[in-house]
């Protein structure tokens, strides 16, 4: 049990992954130590000095979880359109374009089929760098389609969340993705499908209040920010001081909201074991 008494408060820091002047060296935003980029990458983008978790791109995440060269991406060509003709400080189309430039993907989630220690799984991984990992029509659609594939192929489903929530720029269409993803997952689970949900920093709003919290088993990376409402909104509404470590993975574990906190380097091993239990158990029945 982690206590939140002084000195043990998980830090939420905005990571800056790249040092623009010298891309070989990266400054850890938490302990300010200078890390050699390549070494940091070998350590799965976790600071070797202070254990700070840098964001991981969806592609890298898939590499850390799946058997080499087993990932076959599905629905890679689905791309978003500006259904509400929305613009705020920037047009939505520009935000989409920037997301594509930043991630080399067309949307905030990559989905596909692959293997973990030779067990076939359907996996979806979100990328926070794409419009804050927000869920609009395409993210919802890719999750629905992936879940259907998992159901029809009788493979476990793994979703790795990293999202600020529903995508405001697609308005009510985004909200409805909460219902759609939950419906699809319900259908899958009702038929005995196993869904493992992995929460990473951050998982909030419409994503946490839909598919992310429907996992049969819910795991989180250390110190991830996880919650429904934004901290600023909670402070303004309640006029109360938020407790130390509020809405961190550790806080959620303490309050019975998740099963486990799992270090990045141990995630694949844990998934392997769970998948083994599941397939062996099924074989016996």
């Amino acid at each position: 049990m982690i206590s939140f008494s002084k000195g043990n408060t998980p830090k939420i820091v905005k990571p800056q992954e790249k040092n623009i002047e010298n891309p070989d060296w990266i400054k850890c935003p938490s302990c300010r130590s200078i890390q050699y980029a390549k070494q940091l990458e070998e350590n799965l983008s976790v600071c070797p000095k202070c254990n700070f978790y840098f964001k991981l791109s969806a592609t890298k995440r898939i590499e850390t979880l799946l058997d080499e060269n087993t990932f076959e991406e599905t629905d890679a060509d689905l791309s978003s359109f500006d259904i509400l003709k929305f613009s705020d400080t920037k047009p939505y189309t520009q935000r989409l374009e920037e997301g594509i430039q930043k991630t080399n993907h067309l949307e905030a989630i990559i989905t596909g089929l692959g293997s973990i220690e030779n067990t076939r799984v359907a996996i979806g991984v979100m990328d926070f760098d794409f419009v804050g990992g927000s869920m609009g029509i395409v993210v919802g659609e890719k999750i629905v389609r992936l879940t259907d594939k998992a159901r029809l192929n009788h493979t476990p489903l793994i979703l790795v969340s990293s999202s600020g929530g529903a995508r405001m720029q697609e308005g009510i269409f985004s909200l409805m993705q909460m219902a759609r993803t939950s419906a699809a997952i319900g259908k899958f689970q009702e038929q005995g499908g196993l869904y493992l949900s992995i929460l990473t920093n951050p998982t909030t709003g419409g994503v946490s209040a839909s598919f992310a919290f429907l996992g049969d088993i819910i795991m989180a990376e250390p110190a991830s920010l996880i919650g429904f409402a934004g901290t600023r909104v909670i402070e303004q509404t309640t006029k109360q001081k938020l407790p130390a470590g509020f809405q961190t993975a550790e806080f959620l574990l303490e309050h019975g909201q998740i099963d486990k906190i799992v270090e990045r380097k141990n995630m694949r091993k844990l998934l392997t074991r769970l998948l083994q239990f599941y397939s062996k158990g099924k074989m016996e029945s």
Partner: peptide, 15 residues
């Protein structure tokens, strides 16, 4: 959007 709401699993309850 309250502290107890988060402690008691607002996300889970809606989901």
């Amino acid at each position: 959007p309250g502290i107890a709401a988060e402690e008691h699993g607002q996300s889970e309850a809606i989901a």
